[in-house]
């Protein structure tokens, strides 16, 4: 496992549900992800529950939970593919946590689960995230118009994907 001076990555555990709910309820995080506001801790248990097809990671900064990432594995004719999502507490922005989580997701998927195609949807306005994904070899494949509702309007999203050579 990679470890810089302060960031460590581990599997999510049920106890992480409160931190998960708090972070995903922050306005800055909600802007860029798919959850609405006012989600209750009691309904988020599955979001921090690891299953064979849903692998959830936690990033900690000096022992404090600073971000989450989840890797969703597909089956059957899409078994070579997986999707993922990343959320970082804006309090910890700019410290490389997004990069560490993305590195861990790519490593987990490609090196251990045989994933050849990593894909995700990201809102077009989320320029910071798009730059991060491009740095790791993701390319924009599609623009989905009026894909999601965000702060009262409909916004577009990209599908980005990284293919193994």
């Amino acid at each position: 496992m990679t470890e810089t001076s302060a960031i460590s990555i581990r599997a999510a555990e049920p106890e992480d549900v409160a931190a998960y709910t708090r972070i995903h309820g922050l306005p800055e995080v909600m802007q860029e992800t798919s959850q609405p506001p006012y989600m209750a801790v009691s309904e988020q248990a599955r979001r921090v529950t690891n299953t064979p097809n849903e692998r959830i990671l936690v990033a900690e900064w000096d022992g404090t939970i600073a971000g989450f990432a989840s890797l969703t594995l597909y089956a059957g004719r899409r078994a070579h593919a997986a999707s993922f999502g990343i959320a970082v507490d804006p309090e910890f922005a700019g410290r490389g946590i997004g990069s560490e989580l993305l590195s861990a997701i790519i490593d987990l998927g490609e090196q251990w689960y045989g994933i050849k195609r990593l894909e995700l949807k990201v809102l077009v306005e989320n320029e910071r995230a798009i730059r991060l994904y491009k740095r790791f070899g993701f390319e924009i494949e599609a623009t989905h118009r009026q894909y999601a509702q965000r702060a009262g309007r409909y916004v577009d999203a990209y599908t980005m994907a990284r293919l193994s050579p």
């Binding site: 899409r78 195609r117 994907a161």
Partner: peptide, 24 residues
């Protein structure tokens, strides 16, 4: 057509592309 998903799925021995299409 909104885009092309490269090597989207496996089909009869090969990985094939799929198109994303949508109607607004």
């Amino acid at each position: 057509v909104e885009g092309v998903y490269r090597k989207y799925a496996y089909r009869e021995g090969a990985f094939v592309d799929a198109l994303a299409m949508a109607r607004l």
